[in-house]
């Protein structure tokens, strides 16, 4: 089992640091955001699986050649109230770490989903009470605010797109259409689900800077995917103008730009530039990356289960 534990640990280290950093630095994701989003999800999932898997295998090693058999021995002894034979301090620590880490990640995901839902519900009720429905546009509300604002509120049957009066005044009809299509794409493609998972991951691992990079990268990729949907309805230059105008605040008074420290200027530039000079991803990327993503997720369970590694 030690070989499996070592291989899983190596994979975990690779997926925790060099692989996501290389992906965050590469330029092809702007040209193939869907593929890149798939890869980020595979890296996150496989990274967590291999880390927990390597601890689990190391923790179970004293009880048997195969993890399933080892778990049977362990639970059998534990139920009788006996410390299983062969337990060492190291194996006990590894097993405890695997269980704690797994529980920590799962509980954090649940807590983040619940908190996010509660915030959205509160915000939705405020929007419904303080905004007017947009004429002839279903599920779209108009806020009486001068700043150009557009966002969407996901919800199983009650999703909303919210625009401000300032945005409608600032943009042409076609630009508004682009914004609306962009927000609808977020809702249709359920980007909120991916985002909440990466948000939970970052909150669960505050000492792990790559989690925050991953969240930023995934957020930008969902924006690009939504842009790509909007491009089917409005021409690229129109959408690019809408993004630039809204990002600059349209010179709206009362909203100092300094307040927007959280906003990432680089992401706005990247979104606009890929619209101004569109290019498709290298063929190699389109062919290899999806396969690599699937392989990443398959490898940890195979390493856990295969007798040739565990025997």
């Amino acid at each position: 089992m030690i070989l499996a534990a070592v291989l899983l640990a190596i994979l975990a280290v690779l997926l925790a640091w060099p692989v996501p950093l290389a992906l965050a630095r590469s330029s092809w994701p702007d040209r193939a955001p869907g593929t890149a989003l798939l890869l980020w999800q595979a890296i996150a999932l496989a990274g967590v699986l291999s880390l927990i898997g390597s601890l689990l295998v190391a923790g179970l090693a004293p009880y048997g050649a195969h993890p399933v058999a080892a778990i049977r021995v362990l639970t059998g002894d534990a139920l009788r109230g006996a410390v299983p034979q062969g337990t060492t301090t190291g194996s006990a620590l590894a097993l405890a770490a695997a269980i704690l880490l797994g529980a920590h990640l799962v509980l954090n995901l649940v807590a983040t989903v619940v908190r996010t839902e509660r915030q959205r519900a509160r915000h939705r009720s405020l929007v419904l009470l303080l905004s007017a429905p947009m004429p002839e546009t279903p599920r779209t509300r108009v806020l009486d605010a001068t700043a150009p604002i557009a966002y969407c509120l996901p919800g199983t049957a009650r999703s909303l797109t919210v625009l401000s009066a300032g945005l409608l005044a600032l943009l042409s009809e076609q630009e508004v259409q682009g914004v609306v299509e962009h927000e609808r794409a977020h809702l249709r493609q359920h980007h909120a689900l991916v985002l909440v998972a990466f948000r939970a991951w970052r909150i669960a691992l505050p000492w792990f800077p790559v989690a925050s990079r991953a969240q930023d990268a995934v957020g930008l990729l969902t924006e690009m995917l939504a842009d790509d949907q909007a491009r089917r309805t409005v021409p690229d230059p129109v959408l690019a103008r809408a993004i630039a105008i809204v990002a600059s605040g349209g010179g709206a008074p009362g909203v100092p730009l300094e307040d927007a420290a959280a906003a990432d200027p680089v992401s706005v530039g990247r979104r606009v530039r890929r619209l101004v000079s569109p290019a498709s991803a290298p063929r190699a990327v389109r062919a290899v990356v999806p396969i690599a993503a699937v392989a990443l997720v398959v490898v940890p369970p195979v390493l856990l289960a295969m007798p040739s590694f565990t025997g």
Binding site: T116, Q119, R120, H123, I149, A150, Y151, C152, L153, P154, V179, H182, E183, H186, H191, A192, L195, T222, E223, I243, A244, V246, A247, S248, G249, L257, D259, A260, A262, A263, D264, P265, V266, S267, V268, G269, R271, V272
Partner: peptide, 17 residues
């Protein structure tokens, strides 16, 4: 919890755009 259309960019960056 909200997905905004676009975040605010810095004055320099938006001027360039």
């Amino acid at each position: 919890a909200l997905a905004r259309f676009v975040g605010r960019a810095s004055a320099d960056e938006t001027a360039a755009l």
